[in-house]
Nucleic acid binder design. Structure first.
Lengths: 211, 211
DNA sequence: GTCTATACACGGATAGAC
DNA sequence: GTCTATCCGTGTATAGAC
């Protein structure tokens, strides 16, 4: 890890590389905040630097251009997303996983709607810049495989035969969650939190979807 | 309609109001093109005016500000969307409606991905501006009611009992289509066009979703 | 490595001619 | 009602001090 120290090493101020890394991280945090509130074009480097507690100079000593900063943010965001999602099924049963879907959903959009907005912003940016797209989707194929395999295993263990493969379920659940989240941004009252879970149960081949 | 003439009326040049209306429409068309390609902040009035074959002056004689132009576009986009969607079930059976879902989907994102991008852009803009949100969702409650009732009627006529109300199905189908469309923008090969139809059949309570 | 100061271009908006 | 010309703020990016 970046900030770890050897045992017995005296407590001291950060090395240059550590300080640099910290500044970089702070700038990326601030960039995330501002980009997701204002969008790519709406966000000014001034605002980002100020949010991070620096001036624009700090940005240009850590990143080539605004686009470069944005792409670094894409990388970090994607890594976090993959880290969060890749272990969400550890040691759970199918029923548990499905029941927890709305909790995941809630955490994704309820607690941090701006983060979700950033995710969408990144997809739009991907349309305009192939490089952004490339970075954003890096590793998602593996994640999908892994998640799909988890679903397959869970279904087999539960003795269920869903009309979809684990991989298809993975794609469908993500799509539904994303679509419902968007709809909830527009008209919160139209999206019952339980709807996602019921639909997921239905797609997974479990009968009592009526809740 | 704006451009219609009385019978027997001599062919003549447009009246002032007609000309004005035409300019306004052309500007809105151009604004749609540029906004959906570049986003709100990325689109310049210069580019919009040029696309429409005018100069910026024409914009300011038809709209108060850039935001005003954008909101007028929101209104028109929403009206078109409602007009398209409100008659899509006329005289069709449940099976037909479901089978046609991917066609609708295809038309929405396959033939005009930019229009879909604009739709998403509008949702993001709604987060930042309540007025945009208000305009964007105007009439959608009625549309949802109408669509939901159509589904209920179709289900009843087909003798099906889906685990969801027509209204819930309406929300779910829209959410799935939107989510899958976003995913397809990122990684086209991961979204089988038939997946939406199969999922919809499953949610509607029709057995053979394996297709 | 970060800050201050600044160059330079661009975008939104306005004024006034036609 | 639209066009030309222009004002002015803002934004990216760079130069140079510390």
């Amino acid at each position: 890890m970046a900030g770890s120290r050897q045992i017995g090493e005296p407590a001291r101020r950060l090395t240059r590389e550590e300080a640099r890394r910290q500044t970089r991280e702070r700038l990326l945090d601030a960039a995330g905040d501002v980009f997701k509130r204002l969008g790519y074009n709406g966000a000014s480097l001034e605002a980002i630097a100020e949010t991070a507690g620096y001036t624009k100079g700090a940005i240009y000593s850590n990143f080539e251009t605004k686009a470069d900063l944005f792409k670094a943010l894409v990388d970090r965001h994607r890594d976090e997303e993959i880290a969060t999602q890749s272990n969400q099924f550890a040691g759970k049963s199918l029923e548990e996983v499905l029941a927890e879907l709305d909790e995941v959903f809630e955490r994704q959009v309820g607690r941090d709607p701006d983060r979700f907005a950033l995710q969408i912003e990144l997809v739009l940016a991907s349309m305009r810049d192939p490089e952004v797209r490339r970075r954003l989707v890096a590793g998602s194929e593996e994640l999908r495989d892994k998640t799909g395999a988890s679903f397959d295993a869970l279904l087999a263990k539960a003795g269920r035969t869903a009309p979809f493969t684990g991989r298809e379920l993975s794609v469908l659940f993500t799509a539904m969650a994303t679509g419902l989240a968007l709809q909830r941004m527009l008209e919160p009252e139209t999206v019952d939190p339980k709807l996602l879970v019921r639909a997921a149960r239905c797609l997974a081949g479990i009968e009592d979807a009526r809740s």
